[in-house]
């Protein structure tokens, strides 16, 4: 990308000046991304007014409040659920991506479109589909009861298990796509070389394929882990009141409790957490371009 020779640049540079091309994006990002984030940072150090609202008075109280065992437990549960979702997506997604990447070219493009297709139906609508399947008088229970496998309907909806199913379901493609592209890019002659040198397929997988696809694994994990913390509507719909995650907590501060400063502090914490994860990711050689 950076190797464009100066000569080639000229034709276009004569037609539209640079600031007109890149300017609008920069302006948009400054106004609608940077300014709102700075504002959130500012109100995270303020106090909640008596009737909602924000009262200017600099303090760290909102950050200190997070140490309440009640909130710490929510953080703990959220991270456990996010981790479990990530691991499940990876364990199912890796062999899945591997099989697709090794399919014939024609099958590959069909199989890939089939992963993308459900994306075109809104994730909330698909979550509603899970409610129909999982609820007490839902499809699964009806089927299980009519085949006499169970005598009492199972409580499936409004459990942490249901939340996990919903999260894995919604975020699965975000794991599969980066995995797929890193497996697909893998130079197959390396595997042939390993084979020629006497490595059995299993050994070749652990010593060649897996290490070389680590960037895809990292990219996938990050893209599953971070959103899971914020997907409040899945825990809302599938977990009922039994599952309050960080996302629900933040949402509640901004809508129900109207404690914006506390909600802002929680959001800042989430951003810091994200930045730390991204640092770790980049430290291990991850590239931002894999995360799109």
């Amino acid at each position: 990308m950076n190797t464009v020779a100066p000569k080639k640049r000229r034709a276009f540079s004569r037609s539209i000046p640079l600031f007109l091309m890149v300017g609008p994006v920069i302006l948009w990002l400054l106004i609608f991304v940077a300014a709102p984030l700075v504002y959130i940072l500012v109100i995270s150090f303020m106090k909640k007014g008596t009737y909602g609202g924000v009262v200017a008075s600099f303090n760290f109280e909102n950050y200190l409040r997070i140490y309440d065992p009640l909130y710490l437990k929510i953080f703990f549960v959220s991270i456990v659920i996010a981790l479990a979702t990530t691991v499940l997506c990876l364990v199912i997604g890796y062999p899945f991506a591997y099989i697709i990447a090794r399919a014939s070219d024609r099958n590959k493009s069909i199989l890939l479109s089939l992963i993308m297709l459900p994306f075109w139906t809104n994730s909330l609508i698909r979550t509603y589909g899970w409610i129909i399947l999982l609820r007490t008088n839902g499809t699964f229970n009806t089927l299980l009861l009519s085949t006499h496998l169970i005598s009492q309907p199972l409580q499936m909806l409004y459990t942490n298990g249901a939340v996990m199913v919903g999260m894995v379901y919604t975020l699965f493609p975000f794991m599969v796509l980066p995995l797929y592209s890193s497996i697909e890019k893998l130079d197959r002659s390396l595997l042939e070389a390993a084979n020629d040198l006497g490595a059995k397929p299993r050994r070749a997988f652990w010593r060649v394929t897996l290490p070389l696809t680590v960037p895809g694994v990292f990219a996938g994990c990050i893209q599953v882990f971070i959103p899971t913390l914020g997907y409040f509507f899945i825990s809302d719909l599938l977990g009922g009141g039994n599952s309050v995650l960080v996302g629900n907590l933040i949402r509640n501060q901004f809508l129900a409790a109207r404690d914006w400063p506390f909600g802002a502090a929680l959001s800042i914490l989430l951003i810091v957490f994200t930045i730390v994860l991204m640092r770790v990711y980049k430290h291990f050689g991850g590239s931002l371009e894999n995360i799109t």
């Binding site: 640079l18 890149v22 994006v25 920069i26 990002l29 609608f32 991304v33 940077a34 300014a35 709102p36 984030l37 504002y39 959130i40 109100i43 971070i226 959103p227 913390l229 914020g230 409040f232 996302g247 933040i250 949402r251 901004f254 914006w260 909600g263 802002a264 959001s267 989430l270 951003i271 994200t274 991204m278 931002l288 995360i291 799109t292």
Partner: peptide, 29 residues
Amino acid sequence: FRGKSIVDSFLYIPIVIPEIVMGISLLAF
């Protein structure tokens, strides 16, 4: 151009930050 890499990383902020944070920051804004 100068600052290109800054614009580049700036572009990734909306991609990387959790959606809920973008939602509430715009709401507050």
